[in-house]
């Protein structure tokens, strides 16, 4: 049920972002979720992540739940930033946005660390999702990436010795091109 909520929430945020991207000069804002719901959204993500198994091999359902959580995290981060861009006339808006996003990530990041720490294969799976998320934020030139990177890079290096050359190259690419 929580995964269904999470999926629905992701589609709502995606719809809102599509509206913002396609109608940037629209006078009618399409911001269905206030930024102060950040912690509630993080809570929902955590409930889904709690079902992730520590010792046994994850089922396809659990693996897709993990992917779904990462997609929600990416969408929420981009959404917060776009809402801030829309409200650039309000001086404190950027600060509020940074706060909302950092609070969100400070809540979910420890669980990603925990899952990545279970084993090398768990770590690799988390790394693939996380790198894709970071690359996505870089692609949209997210200024929040600079704030988030120091926190999230620790997850990438949990199993530092076993990072594949491909992953190391992708991490380096992100470090080389700050937004």
């Amino acid at each position: 049920e929580c995964v269904a909520h999470l999926r629905l929430l992701s589609w709502i945020i995606l719809g809102s972002l599509n509206h913002m991207a396609m109608c940037p000069s629209s006078d009618v804002p399409c911001h269905p979720l206030p930024l102060d719901t950040s912690l509630q959204i993080a809570d929902l993500a955590l409930v889904v992540l709690e079902s992730y198994p520590e010792h046994t091999k994850a089922s396809v359902y659990q693996m897709s739940s993990l992917a779904q959580v990462f997609i929600l995290c990416q969408l929420w981060t981009i959404y917060c930033e776009q809402v801030a861009v829309f409200n650039t006339s309000h001086g404190d808006m950027y600060r509020t946005t940074c706060l909302a996003v950092m609070e969100f990530w400070m809540k979910v990041a420890p669980t990603f660390i925990q899952i990545a720490s279970y084993s090398k294969s768990h770590g690799e799976m988390v790394n693939l999702h996380l790198l894709s998320l970071l690359e996505g934020l870089q692609e949209v030139n997210s200024s929040l990436l600079v704030q988030l990177y120091p926190m999230l890079v620790t997850i990438l290096y949990i199993h530092e010795g076993s990072l594949s050359a491909g992953l190391q190259h992708r991490i380096q690419e992100i470090q080389n091109c700050p937004p």
Binding site: L14, L17, M20, A21, M22, S64, V140
Partner: peptide, 23 residues
């Protein structure tokens, strides 16, 4: 906005795949 739309399209594709998996 082009970059944002491209990124959203990719996420939409991934979400679509996950919907198929879950159904």
């Amino acid at each position: 906005n082009k970059a944002l739309l491209k990124c959203l399209q990719r996420l939409q594709y991934k979400m679509g795949q996950l919907e198929v998996q879950s159904s």
